[in-house]
Write a protein that binds this DNA or RNA. Structure first.
Lengths: 295, 295
DNA sequence: ACGATCGATGCCGTTCCGGAATGGTCGACC
DNA sequence: GGTCGACCATTCCGGAACGGCATCGATCGT
């Protein structure tokens, strides 16, 4: 068995072809170097160096071994470096689950900021139903998850990363589209399209409460899983909807958005397990500090 | 500095996640293994293993280091194996110079046999003027060279690898082409095409002597470097020639070959330096043992 | 023929490693 | 809740390995 110290000895000798200088480079004296080289040759059963007292030359096997040993040494150094980088959260991967809506709002700036700041960390993004996020975070398949704020965090840590007002999505042919902005009261009697209760309970209740406070009895006609589906249905004239403002990026024929006066806000939150040891997770959270303004 | 033994320790632990079993696999007891792991973590300044007395788990850095360490270990084993293979002449390269004529005769079977028997050795073939072979072998740019036998071997070792009779190349329209075979005497007065004196002195003298013995005064009209050029010129009707029989593979319009009765033979020889240490060289020479019959 | 250079060898003090025994902690089980 | 068992950490000790010093032997240049 040839260990790394012996390889270092041999590489130094192969570089200098001179026992004295090689020993000097290795911060040792010449005799132990001679012994190390002899030990390698004995271990391999192969003569690596042709030496007479005047000249040192590598054999074909020595030339080959020098190359290979160099590769082993750099690989070993790389291994140590990588361990330190992984410990510092600068190498590895983070698995993040996100609800589809986040793909239009918080995920793009998060991805840009994080990958720019930590190029060594692979950010693995997994589109996930909001209801499945807690379980997947708890069992470790995900390091973090992005969804709307919920009341029951299943013991997970959380932090608000984005706060956006709701706005009104309505068919562009609708009578109300003539107004630059709308009040909740104007939506009385309108058929509504909304996210299903179990998919985004907080968003659903926010909409519900806001309408009730304006004296409007919500008349939810259609339920979907995705905000994207909501605006598609609205564009088809099947109702109106209150959606997060970032949905305005999604434009469709027959679809209009209007500001909602005194609009309530909906918060996007990132969840993670407190005892998650992935060193890259704190880096991810740090990258999310200032997303709100950017998105 | 983490050495290979420590990496072996860590990999065993990463595989088993159990100090006792890992130590058993390493043929040692548990306490020194604990120390080695602790030493690695101290050397790296990174916690690689989360252990309580109940469960052992790798950290992200540990997971990464386990993978990298495995790669380093296999690279180290490969390095040792390669050194042994190189020593045995089963890994590396051999540089062989050859005169052009050999490309039609000895080189193809040599290449086939050698590469089949020693797939790890790269056979580098260099077309070389015969006169340049000795110098390039002596200065080490070539491990061996293939040419016609010469008298002055410049102190090189040599071995005959192919012996072939000469035959007559003549224009197919020539009167002598009516005979199935020819005697040297029939070539009296014919203009000859032959290789230049300094290119292949032995071949040249063999032809010369054979004709003289038959009472024919050689009348060499054209001189070339390549046997291939000779038959091209013969095909153009510019003369007749005596060429090695393997040239019969080269067929050209207007060109005919005829057996030469009591034909002298010309030998191809491989040359090498006795003190050449390339372990693949003996393998090459061994592969040439039985080429004669095959070619 | 002599000196200088260079690698190999003998010897010694120190360090490092592995083994055995022991300690300490946590979970399981009665 | 107390005891037992599993498991990793710590301590101590004997042996092997390493590096430094002094020296030898061979070779080349002067």
């Amino acid at each position: 068995m040839v260990d790394l110290r012996q390889m270092r000895c041999f590489v130094a000798l192969a570089d200098t072809l001179h026992f004295g200088r090689a020993a000097q480079r290795l911060h040792m004296t010449q005799p132990p170097l001679s012994r190390q080289i002899a030990a390698i040759e004995k271990a391999l059963g192969v003569r690596l160096v042709e030496r007479d007292s005047r000249r040192v030359a590598l054999t074909a096997a020595g030339l080959r071994f020098a190359d290979d040993a160099r590769a082993v040494l750099t690989a070993a150094e790389q291994a140590e470096r990588n361990a330190r980088l992984a410990h510092a959260g600068e190498l590895g991967e983070v698995h993040v689950g996100f609800m589809m809506h986040a793909a239009h709002s918080s995920v793009p700036p998060m991805t840009r900021r994080f990958t720019a700041a930590h190029p060594g960390v692979a950010l693995r993004l997994h589109e996930t139903f909001p209801a499945e996020l807690p379980a997947r975070i708890l069992d470790g398949r995900l390091d973090a998850g992005i969804g709307f704020r919920v009341d029951d965090t299943h013991g997970l840590c959380s932090r608000v990363i984005l706060e956006e007002p709701l706005c009104v999505a309505l068919p562009s042919a609708h009578a109300l589209s003539g107004h630059a902005s709308l009040r909740a009261g104007q939506l009385a009697g309108e058929p509504l399209v909304a996210v299903a209760e179990d998919v985004a309970p907080t968003l659903r209740r926010t909409i519900h409460d806001h309408l009730l406070r304006a004296g409007v009895a919500p008349d939810i006609r259609l339920e979907t899983h995705l905000q994207q589906s909501i605006v598609s249905l609205v564009a088809e004239g099947l109702g109106v909807a209150l959606v997060p403002s970032s949905m305005r990026r999604i434009t469709l024929p027959g679809l209009a958005y209007r500001d909602l006066e005194d609009a309530p806000t909906i918060e996007q939150v990132i969840y993670w397990r407190r005892d998650n040891l992935n060193p890259a997770l704190p880096r991810l959270l740090a990258s999310l500090e200032a997303i709100d303004g950017e998105a």
